[in-house]
Amino acid sequence: MELFAPPVERLIEEFAKLPGIGQKTAQRLAFHVLDLPKEDAERFADAIREAKAKTFTCRRCQNLTDSEICPICSDKTRNQKVICVVAEPRDVIAFERTKEYKGLYHVLHGTLSPMGHVGPDDIRIRELVKRVAEEETEEVILATNPDTEGEATAMYISRLLQPFGIKITRLAYGIPVGGHLEFVDEVTLTRALEGRKEL
């Protein structure tokens, strides 16, 4: 027996398909949308349609954009010889917020995951190798997450790029600012030791 009218049930089901959204949150979002004035609800629906229709991947770095080449790749003031490889478009935003990185990016749109049936052909590794082969790349920074999939992806890419004779680096991982040593796990502490640098 359906608890709500079929259109409401369908709306809840669609919200529940979003990552990190459980049934209760889906219901809350659905009722929020239903409470919106008609114009606001239509603007929301139009924003989804427009984003889906007008957003695609940059021909060069695979980041999301509304043009053939994204603004970062088009920016000639950036270091064109350094590529930071990230798993998802949201990782680019995280780096850009630091205002420290001035190179280019390559977005994989995922990581290798044998358990999830995600292999090298399912993410944008081929495009990265082609870029390195065709451009004057001097360094590739592997900035995938320090989890099993991220590590496996970084190792795989590292082996693929080795023949190009370029510098291949991995982000240093360690103790977060404000963290306490007694609460840090052994793997993180080991990484922090390995990634230590001279002051």
Rank of each mutant, 00 (worst) to 15 (best):
M1K: 09
F4L: 06
V8R: 02
V8A: 12
R10E: 11
E13P: 10
G20S: 09
A26N: 05
L29K: 13
L29G: 06
E39H: 11
R43P: 08
R43I: 13
A45Q: 08
A45L: 14
A45D: 07
A51T: 13
K54N: 15
T55I: 04
T57A: 06
C58N: 06
R60C: 10
C61Y: 11
Q62A: 05
L64T: 02
T65L: 06
T65C: 12
S67C: 10
E68A: 12
I69T: 15
C73T: 04
N79L: 04
Q80S: 12
K81G: 01
V85Q: 07
A87T: 03
V92N: 02
V92L: 02
G103L: 00
Y105Q: 02
H106G: 12
L108Y: 14
T111A: 13
L112R: 03
V118C: 10
V118E: 02
G119E: 08
D121H: 05
I123K: 12
I125Q: 02
L128T: 04
V129I: 15
V132A: 03
A133R: 10
T137K: 03
I141N: 01
N145Y: 09
G150I: 04
Y156A: 02
Y156S: 04
L160T: 01
I166V: 00
A172M: 03
Y173V: 08
V177D: 00
L181P: 01
L181Q: 00
E182T: 13
F183L: 14
V187D: 15
L189S: 05
R191I: 10
R196K: 12
R196N: 03
K197Q: 14
K197V: 13
L199S: 14
L199Q: 05
